[in-house]
Computed example of a mutant assay.
Amino acid sequence: MAIFFHILGHNIIPIFTLIVLGFILSKKFDLDIFSLSKLNFYLLVPAFIFVNLYTTAISLDMIKVLFCAIFILVSNDIIGRIIAKIRNYDVGLTNAFKNSIMFNNSGNIGLSLAVLVFSSAPFVVDGKTPYLTEAITAQIIILVFQNITTNTLGFYNAGKANLKAKDSIIKVLSMPSIYAIPAAFILKSIDFDFTETIIWPALEYLKNALVPIVLITLGVQLSKTKFDLKNTDVHISAFTRLIIGPILATLYIHILGFTGIVAQTVFIAYSVPTAVNTALIAVECDSCQDFASQAVMVSTLFSAVTLTLSIYVARVMFPI
């Protein structure tokens, strides 16, 4: 029970506090959701991706984690298509549903959870955290991959509801995030320390602002959302993300031969709820906004319980 309340107090309650603050502010001042989404996608997200890519050392051993992320994304896409076919979703809901199960909250929940789990007992040895670096590196790879695909494929999926394929691609190409990726790798490859430039502190400020602003923005969107707690499609999304997600992760962990810390990290990383950005993308593309917002909220709410179980299961299944 101790770890349950630890996760609840250090991860879930702070997240919901920011969402509620956004909700209250929007009800009082009628904040503009479209301006907030522009702030996120044109400043905060690209800065977040660039800083993380530039500062994270990625070893060849961790390339397998990237392949795992790709395999799980493709598998979720297939599952989403099958469920959409069975449920007779239209194009808009099909792609909103796919986004809700393909893209998870690997940033403000996944990364902070990795730090919490692997810097506390039983992973502390003589006052040190020997497993933390390995766990964080694996989590960062998943995080960056999720951010890249959310802000490219996620936008393409959402745009297909109201745009032609060509216009959807143009929408993706207009997102600064995809240009932050090659920029980070180019700068990493040259003999120059970009962190010493005068622009670096500004980029770090933007990166650090992503989590609170995204959550506040979600609160604003929720204040404008019509809720239907009996929406079966939302509950199917949450079940697929929180239950089927870890099962898929287990499959690929065994296929790729992960063990110990990396296996635990991957398992926990794919047990987190739907990415907040999927709701913001729905707003930006004006596509199934209510479903996307509810999918984020319901999966985040249920994750308070399922994440606790996932951490326990990870330790039992993949001991160090």
Rank of each mutant, 00 (worst) to 15 (best):
D90M: 09
I101N: 04
S100C: 08
N88R: 15
R87V: 00
C68L: 08
N105C: 07
G80S: 09
D90R: 06
T55C: 02
L66E: 01
L53P: 04
L73C: 10
T94H: 04
L66Q: 03
T55V: 04
F67W: 12
K85N: 14
M62E: 12
N76E: 05
I86M: 09
F97Q: 02
K98Q: 13
S106D: 10
N104D: 13
K85D: 05
N88A: 11
F97G: 08
S100M: 07
F71T: 01
M62F: 10
A57C: 04
A96L: 01
N76P: 02
K85I: 00
F67Y: 15
A96I: 01
L53I: 07
L53M: 13
C68S: 13
S75F: 02
R81T: 05
F97P: 05
S75L: 02
S59G: 15
N88P: 03
S106F: 03
A57H: 14
S100F: 01
L73W: 11
L53H: 05
I83S: 05
L66R: 01
A96D: 02
F103M: 11
M102D: 03
D77Q: 09
A69W: 03
L73P: 07
S75I: 00
N76S: 07
R87D: 10
N88V: 01
I63P: 07
I78V: 15
R87G: 05
T94N: 14
S106R: 07
D61P: 04
S100D: 12
S59K: 15
I63R: 11
D90W: 00
S106V: 09
S75H: 06
I82K: 10
C68H: 06
I83F: 03
N105Y: 02
G92M: 00
I72F: 08
A57M: 07
C68Y: 05
I70S: 11
L60N: 14
G92S: 15
G80D: 09
T94G: 07
Y89P: 04
I79D: 07
K64P: 03
N95L: 01
F71H: 04
